[in-house]
Design a protein around this nucleic acid. Structure first.
Lengths: 228, 228
DNA sequence: TTTCAAAAGTGTATCATTTACACTTATTTT
DNA sequence: AAAATAAGTGTAAATGATACACTTTTGAAA
């Protein structure tokens, strides 16, 4: 391939970045992790958590690495949202950025990282102005999440491994931005036998207590049909 | 920003390419435009039609330019599918490639371009082995198209501006890979008043002749609800 | 210890949507 | 005149989606 080097070298090269739209769920609200940069360039600007792709990394590997650096978590659900490449989207240099939608259980997130990264969990309904096209990335990531949450078991990534049906429902409501009928919702849950009732009870959110459920992925794989 | 140049320069840069998954529809078959390269590198390998992003171009502009160079057409429907960035996906150099799904009316395509580009219309069901991840791009572009065709008026981009309902139905069948009940299909068409019957008749495909319809986009915009 | 507050849990009837299904019509060719 | 070919048309049954309100359980407060 050596002899065709000029074929490639006649074309320009760009920085390629990863931006993570990290979703979490707490207090009935869908949140995302944003950062107010305390370093140059763009100090003080609100932005998504990101990083650059390295020479020796697949872009998905880079996304996993960046996400791990920012959240401390491994084996996290992430999906590519899209790629953003306006010429002037980053005034410091030509940067093409690939956005990823990341879903984490907010309780597994080490809050100390917020100090280190100067980052915050902000409700998606009350985001500040943000760096260039980062609002577009968030919008598109949310659309992706909305499209998936009713048809694939992705919401469980935002919950603890044991959760109540009320938590699951309020999660769906927060993602879809609309309220859901409780009895209809539970009827649909009941049709999916991979959402398993345990005999454990959570009493933190009510006096009566609510049964805890878990998502059984291997059972789901045997008959992967999901509708909520 | 000058003083932060090193912030960027400490990170690597990559070639960024566009690959177009160009769909066409003819003889009841969904086809895509592929090219057997008659130039180095990778001479003889089947691949999608592509090109590199330039310094002064947004990626969407680059996609439009590349698509225009390859099809001769302007103002075509195109949507980003995803970005493919495995380290070794192109052995000649590190190239990150953004795939676009492109829908054209195959009758507007100048067949002479096939000579110039060494390109062909191949049925999606009978594709040859292809360059690295180009099959993945095609699979993902087809998924995108399948997801959209029933809920948004995108199929019309693959048809002439006047079309019969049988053409529209066989197009949907080709995209979805399953047969559709004729009466149910036409019932749904009848519910969308932006699919307008003309008094023109096409007699090329049957003795009786079939009424020609057209898609009225401004009527659609007044009440954008689509279900087929 | 009784009362109150707060969330959990439970079923049915109606409505809307989707599916299954087969013959007639119009025209050209033989 | 008959045959061949694709266009065009409606209804009934089944399935899925929606609307809707009261009882239960428990801890905290009176």
């Amino acid at each position: 391939m050596e002899k065709f080097r000029s074929f490639y070298e006649s074309h320009p090269r760009f920085h390629v970045a990863i931006d993570c739209v990290v979703f979490g769920f707490k207090d009935r609200e869908l949140k995302i992790l944003i950062q107010q940069r305390n370093f140059e360039p763009f100090q003080g600007v609100w932005s998504l958590m990101g990083g650059f792709v390295r020479e020796d990394e697949d872009i998905d590997e880079a996304a996993r690495r960046v996400c791990n650096e920012l959240t401390g978590l491994k084996d996290v659900y992430m999906r590519q949202v899209g790629t953003y490449g306006k010429v002037d989207r980053d005034p410091g240099a030509r940067v093409v950025s690939i956005a990823y939608c990341v879903l984490i259980d907010i309780d597994r997130y080490n809050a100390q990282l917020n100090m280190m990264n100067n980052s915050y969990w902000e409700n998606i309904t009350t985001l500040p102005d943000m760096f260039f096209d980062h609002k577009d990335m968030i919008r598109d990531a949310l659309k992706l999440l909305q499209r998936k949450v009713s048809r694939e078991p992705v919401g469980f990534n935002l919950l603890p491994s044991l959760f109540t049906l009320t938590q699951l429902q309020t999660l769906h409501e927060a993602i879809l931005g609309e309220s859901i009928d409780k009895r209809n919702f539970r009827k649909r849950v009941g049709e999916m036998n991979f959402i398993e009732k345990t005999d454990l009870v959570d009493k933190t959110s009510s006096r009566r207590g609510a049964y805890l459920y878990r998502f059984n992925n291997s059972e789901y794989q045997r008959n992967p049909e999901f509708k909520l």
